[in-house]
């Protein structure tokens, strides 16, 4: 089943500079897609269009079978949740508990239902013991986990991570990535769209979409993208170390196509000596 269907989408901030150019894209339910591309390629604009924060010039966006327009905007915002880049810009509540409850308050959820729900989602993101803590006591990774709880508690069909790990230290990043893995296990029908510069992170997804100047250059399995040296060079993408190592060793004449770990690659080298 289709989760997102975008057809011939166009958008420009001003007349002379189109940001999204006749873009069409389909994402299946439960798929985990990474959108990569340099700054200014249109990644964030695309996400903002999908949740109706920006209004398209032309084309259509269909979320879970419902076309996005003024009448359906509210329904669609219930289907799509987004976590932004900066952990400090998304914390509204005085405490973790307040912050997670905030989105429920907007939906008029009664208090007696709200309390157990907040606890449940705090637990899901591993923040149960921090319920009464103020944001100044939390690390960046912890704040982003609260932002994910805020997003998930409204039970969206689609979760958009807009560079959600890019301001975190390595521990914070690892926390969020393992949380994403758990979320998918628990709810296989949750569609995840991750905008990222972190290539190791994109490597974990089902599919990578490469955007450049508002157009899709490539949409393929992570491994296929990393094998495409022309594309990697042309669009200045970084690749995981092991991928780069294999490419470079191949140039030196080592046959390492079927080696999948650094140990196996190493073996080939010291055996050939």
């Amino acid at each position: 089943m289709k989760s997102v269907e975008i057809k011939n989408l166009n958008y420009s901030y001003n007349v002379n500079t189109p940001v999204i150019k006749d873009l069409s894209l389909t994402i299946d339910k439960g798929e985990y897609v990474s959108i990569v591309g340099h700054n200014g390629s249109g990644k964030s604009t695309l996400c903002k269009l999908m949740i109706g924060l920006l209004e398209k010039n032309s084309g259509s966006i269909i979320i879970d079978g419902v076309e996005l327009n003024k009448d359906t905007l509210n329904d669609i915002r219930h289907k799509v949740a987004i976590v932004f880049q900066n952990p400090d810009n998304q914390f509204i509540g005085v405490t973790v508990e307040d912050d997670i409850a905030f989105s429920l308050e907007n939906d008029n959820v009664p208090r007696n239902e709200m309390i157990p729900l907040v606890r449940e989602y705090a637990k899901k993101v591993g923040m149960l013991e921090f319920l009464n803590k103020e944001p100044s006591y939390l690390s960046g990774g912890q704040k982003q986990r609260v932002a994910i709880a805020d997003a998930l508690i409204r039970r969206p069909d689609i979760l958009i991570l807009d560079e959600a790990t890019s301001m975190l230290d390595p521990n914070g990043k690892a926390e969020i990535l393992s949380l994403v893995r758990e979320m998918r296990k628990e709810n296989p029908s949750l569609t995840i769209i991750s905008i990222t510069h972190d290539i190791e992170e994109a490597y974990l997804s089902d599919r990578i979409i490469l955007l450049n100047e508002g157009e899709i250059v490539l949409s393929c399995l992570p491994n296929e993208l990393f094998k495409n040296r022309e594309i990697i060079k042309k669009y200045n993408l970084s690749v995981p170390f092991i991928v780069e190592l294999k490419m470079r060793l191949k140039d030196l004449g080592y046959d390492i196509d079927d080696s999948s770990s650094l140990n196996e690659i190493g073996e080939k080298i010291w055996q050939s000596k």
């Binding site: 170390f241 140990n263 690659i265 190493g266 010291w270």
Partner: peptide, 15 residues
Amino acid sequence: PELFKFALLLKEHQL
């Protein structure tokens, strides 16, 4: 860094 780990691994194997 993985690069460094890999270089160490090679060194350990008498390269």
